[in-house]
Design a protein around this nucleic acid. Structure first.
Lengths: 183, 183
DNA sequence: AACTGCGTGTATAAACGGTGTGTATAGTGG
DNA sequence: CCACTATACACACCGTTTATACACGCAGTT
């Protein structure tokens, strides 16, 4: 629950409305990917259900509004989240790898796939490098993170391209023909 | 819908039962993260609803079983998926970055966080390197992918550690004290 | 000057679809 | 009867879209 934890973390600096919280999140962690309101309120409802936040209704001026405050259980939860290292298991479930293997399995041109992906990655790296130059330190750090990972992908794409023939031999031991698809 | 596409891709080599399909997936793409049956059948139901697969009931021997076959629409869908490059936007929503910023915002020790994460990454890299040596080519490729990305994370962790003071200054312009949490 | 109406910003809720997890169920073969 | 094959169901999370309600200010009207 990463969005939930982030919202909880933001709440640790003081009680806030959902609306306000959403904008804080977007400003700090959005980076071209703003949250939807639905997600914010659904997440807050979940946090409320789990006792990590509490609401104080505010009958005062303005439209209906609820102030969310983090509870002590919530603080404990954030602390646990921050001290537990992330497990990067997802790197073992690479969509790129899946695509290459499936392309080979179905007799498609895997080289095309690798080339297309490389071009897209290079395009994005140029864009991010541009974005880095006129951003503040926080922007630079997040761009660097993405750039490092794009570069990692690029290295893997090269490595895989060089071993495509070997991989093809492993992946399709018997060159079974494709059965006709049925409508 | 990545799991759906992968299953669809596997079906292109011939009709299969859900159970069979699950095992094929785990063998080729599982890598320590096997699918749950529930996920397989839910995904197949969705593919069926969207007309990407068709079922042929098999009243023959054995327990109730359904053979799933890919449709021509399904083949088109797989082809489109394989030719469209992946958008690596997620690299801009790094959990690591989020944690560092939140640690700074709430006055925690961000250096600890970076150190802990570095240790965990190094541990995993040693494990993956070991796993690479006694695996086949497919295993080596997937391990390399993970290793490249772990290395990218490591570089970012070093970079961030070196700029922690600057980042802290940017992140907390006013050193607002934490309000007490309420139970 | 007062009234009307309308757009904009603030704030939340409800509904829906995809995805993943856990559990239950049922037949078959040894 | 136990393990293996095979599926279904229920639930929770996550994200998107759409609807709703109120306040505020401003433009145009009379």
């Amino acid at each position: 629950m990463s969005v939930g934890h982030a919202l909880l973390g933001l709440l640790e600096s003081g009680p806030r409305h959902g609306y306000d919280l959403k904008r804080s999140y977007d400003e700090r962690f959005g980076h071209g990917r703003a949250l939807h309101y639905g997600q914010v309120y659904a997440t807050l409802a979940r946090l409320l259900k789990n006792g990590l936040v509490a609401v104080e209704s505010e009958p005062g001026a303005g439209p209906d509004r609820k102030r969310y405050a983090i509870t002590s259980a919530g603080v404990t939860d954030v602390a646990a989240w921050l001290t537990t290292p992330e497990k990067p298991e997802p790197y073992l479930q690479s969509a790129l790898y899946t695509k290459v293997v499936l392309a080979l399995l179905t007799g498609r041109d895997a080289t095309d796939l690798l080339d297309t992906q490389r071009a897209e990655h290079l395009r994005l790296m140029r864009e991010l490098t541009r974005r880095k130059t006129d951003g503040d330190l926080a922007d630079q750090l997040i761009c660097d993170h993405a750039l490092f990972h794009l570069e990692a992908d690029l290295r893997w794409l090269e490595l895989t391209a060089a071993r495509l023939d070997q991989l093809a031999a492993r992946v399709r031991p018997g060159s079974d023909p494709l059965p006709p698809a049925r409508p």
